[in-house]
Amino acid sequence: MATHQEITESLKAFTEGYSKNQRLKAMNRDWDRNVLVLADDIESAHTLVLKDGELSFSEGKTVDPDLTVISNSDTLADMFFGDITPTEPYMNGTLRIIGSEDDILRLDFISLLIWGE
């Protein structure tokens, strides 16, 4: 089981990886989204905010998320650190993402472009 702090660290790594990639920023210039990241085994909630191509995150929940990412703390930490791809837990049901299919795919594209294949 990962801690809330580890998930925070993983999201920090994720946003740092994102901000180093100019093409990603250009790609998401018109894709403004609030992404709620929830752990289902510990008390932990974070919000990723994509606005004008820039990605930031904060601890706590957002009121009206466009996408909600729910999984156990270990999977969330591994995924945002890039140790696992989101697809594997998504396909076996460990990871649940509530949102449109296109938005889910875009989130996976972002992860791919930050952490590679």
Binding site: A2, Q5, E6, E9, S10, K12, A13, E16, G17, K20, N21, L24, A77, D78, F81, G82, D83, L113, I114, W115, G116, E117
Partner: peptide, 22 residues
């Protein structure tokens, strides 16, 4: 990355750049 980061401690905050350029 997660394990190596845990070993080096979160305070360092150094994140290996992903192979995005690949």
């Amino acid at each position: 990355r997660r394990r190596s980061r845990a070993a080096s401690g979160p305070a360092q905050g150094v994140v290996p750049a992903g192979p995005a350029s690949d």
